[in-house]
Design a protein around this nucleic acid. Structure first.
Length: 178
DNA sequence: ATAGCGATGTTCT
DNA sequence: GAACATCGCTATA
C-alpha cells in the first residue's frame, strides 16, 4: 500500500514512487503522468535538505505526516513539489523531478506552451500538472493531487542528486528506465 | 551541441 | 548582500 510505503524510510519510498501514477484534478480537468525521476532528501540528517536547519515558514509542511505535499518556490520563479515521508516530524521528503505524460496531454501542452518535454524537470512537472503553492500542505492520499495505482515495472538507476552543492555524493537520485 | 545568462522569492550570513 | 533542490532564450561552434 502506498500509505505504508510513505510512512517508511525515505530511500525505499523514493524508489517505490517511481513508476506510479501522479494525478492532478485542477480546474475540472484531469492530468496525469507516470513518475520517472525522483530524489530523496533525508530531513535533519541531510545537509542538502531544506529541513536540515529546522522548521521555517517555507518548509512547515515537511514536518507533517507521510503523504503531505511540500511545494516551494525555486529560484523565485518555479514551483517544485515533494512528497513527505516517514513519521510526522521526520521532515524527510521525495522531490518529484519528472514524469511521462499519461492523461490530459492537451491541457499540459497548453499550460507549458510547448509539446516537447512536457513534464521533465521539477519546475516543468509542476507547471504541466498545474501545481502551485496553494497545494502546499495538502495530502497526496486524498486531495486534488494524488498518487494512484501500482508502479509500472522498470529498471531503477541511482545517481548523484542534481543542482546541489552539499552532500552531492549521495546517490539519491532515482530514474526509471523503460 | 554546449555555454552563458537573466528572472526573482526565501533563507542565510 | 549572496546563495539557491531551475528553466529557456541567446550566442557561439
Amino acid at each position: 500500500m502506498i500509505e505504508a510505503l510513505l510512512a517508511g524510510p525515505v530511500i525505499p519510498a523514493a524508489r517505490g514512487l517511481l513508476g506510479r501514477c501522479l494525478v492532478s484534478d485542477i480546474g475540472g480537468t484531469r492530468t496525469a503522468v507516470v513518475l520517472t525521476e525522483v530524489e530523496a532528501y533525508d530531513g535533519a540528517d541531510d545537509p542538502a535538505s531544506h529541513a536540515y536547519r529546522g522548521p521555517t515558514r517555507r518548509n512547515t509542511s515537511m514536518f507533517k505526516g507521510p503523504g503531505t505535499l511540500y511545494v516551494y518556490r525555486s529560484y523565485g520563479i518555479h514551483w517544485c513539489m515533494n512528497v513527505v515521508c516517514g513519521p510526522a516530524g521526520t521532515a524527510s521528503a521525495v522531490l518529484l523531478r519528472g514524469g511521462a505524460p499519461l492523461d490530459g496531454v492537451e491541457v499540459m501542452t497548453h499550460r507549458r506552451g510547448r509539446t516537447a518535454r512536457l513534464a521533465e524537470g521539477p519546475g516543468n512537472l509542476t507547471q504541466a500538472l498545474g501545481v502551485t503553492g496553494e497545494h502546499d500542505g495538502m495530502s497526496v492520499l486524498d486531495g486534488p493531487i494524488r498518487i494512484e495505482g501500482a508502479p509500472v515495472p522498470g529498471e531503477i538507476v541511482a545517481s548523484p542528486r542534481v543542482g546541489i552543492t552539499l552532500a552531492f555524493d549521495r546517490p539519491w537520485r532515482f530514474v526509471l528506465v523503460r
